[in-house]
Write a protein that binds this DNA or RNA. Structure first.
Length: 290
DNA sequence: AGCTGGTAAACTTAACCTTG
DNA sequence: CAAGGTTAAGTTTACCAGCT
């Protein structure tokens, strides 16, 4: 495939939006006493420019924004918020991207489930409702800059970035050139305008982020469970056991099974775990941020 | 310092599937 | 059956690690 100006333009718009969001997340991290890491940042604590984290299956993924507790330029902290940014020009690619984000972020969140990290996605371009819903339903908070608004704001500052599948390369090169010629002060103006246009969305996103960063433990439930384990090889007998089981308290001597622990946070987050030994239960409680 | 191979992200293209 | 959404496969770019 020959070099496509439209392809490049899409990438650069994506990059621009990422940079537009940076100060927003930086100020939330700063005011709440957390450390923000992002792609491109020079940080001695890790190698290179990428924010690379390993997931629960041992695969690694590059992330866009990551907020850490106890992190610094020289020390890696604990991941408490993961935020991805993505641009897609056409709805037909949006489902795909939503799934990519899930596939990268959720397994990392699983690895750090004891921290219950905040999940966010800054989505821009054309996304279908099912794509957004899918992200939402799997725990992501979303900011969505739709294509029309992005085009509108750039146009207001003299650059027409509109393109589609019929845009000729000649035309595309001109658009790319015009986009690249934007002075940094004009870029700042575009950013401000775009953020204003989506002010409500951004405010509700950042306030949820703040709540998550500031959350306190509200209650810790511990249920020690007693009883035997029963095993079955077929469904019929398994169901029969439940029908026939006497759930009334009885005098039968019961052996200890496990601790069931549920932690409720002030922002509605919930953390659960079950542990067979005292040590495991205690180390779980130690690993939880409080 | 430059080469090479590997991994991942961003994006395009095209075929396939659903729906009105 | 046309339009639009979903899925699969392929290209380009960037970065990194190991080697020379």
């Amino acid at each position: 495939m020959a070099k496509s100006p439209i392809h490049t333009l899409g990438q650069e718009i994506g990059l621009f939006l990422e940079q537009a969001m940076l100060p927003v997340f930086q100020s939330v991290a700063d005011t709440n006493g957390f450390y923000l890491d992002f792609v491109g940042k020079d940080r001695p604590a890790r190698k290179g420019k990428k924010v690379k984290w390993e997931d629960i299956y041992g695969s690694s993924h590059d992330l866009d924004f990551l907020i850490e507790k106890n992190g610094s330029d020289t020390n890696m902290g604990q991941p408490v918020a993961i935020i991805e940014a993505a641009w897609r020009r056409y709805t037909k690619h949006s489902k795909n991207k939503a799934q990519e984000i899930q596939a990268a972020v959720l397994p990392i969140a699983d690895k750090y489930s004891h921290l219950k990290p905040f999940l966010g996605a800054v989505i821009a371009g054309d996304f279908t409702a099912p794509s957004l819903k899918q992200l939402n339903a799997s725990g992501f908070n979303i900011i969505y800059f739709n294509y029309a608004n992005v085009v509108k704001v750039f146009l207001k500052f003299g650059v027409d970035i509109y393109f589609d599948e019929d845009t000729e390369d000649d035309d595309g090169w001109k658009k790319l050139e015009a986009f690249r010629k934007l002075t940094s002060s004009k870029k700042d103006a575009v950013t401000t305008e775009l953020l204003n246009l989506h002010e409500k969305e951004i405010n509700s996103f950042t306030s949820k982020l703040k709540e998550a960063l500031d959350r306190q433990i509200k209650q810790i439930f511990i249920s020690p469970l007693f009883g035997e384990n029963y095993s079955f090889t077929d469904m019929t007998n398994a169901k029969k056991f439940i029908y026939d089981y006497n759930s009334e308290p009885n005098n039968e001597e019961l052996t200890f099974a496990k601790y069931q622990i549920v932690i409720h946070y002030t922002n509605g987050d919930k953390l659960e775990g079950s542990f067979r030994s005292k040590d495991r239960a205690i180390s779980f409680l130690n690993s939880v941020l409080h």
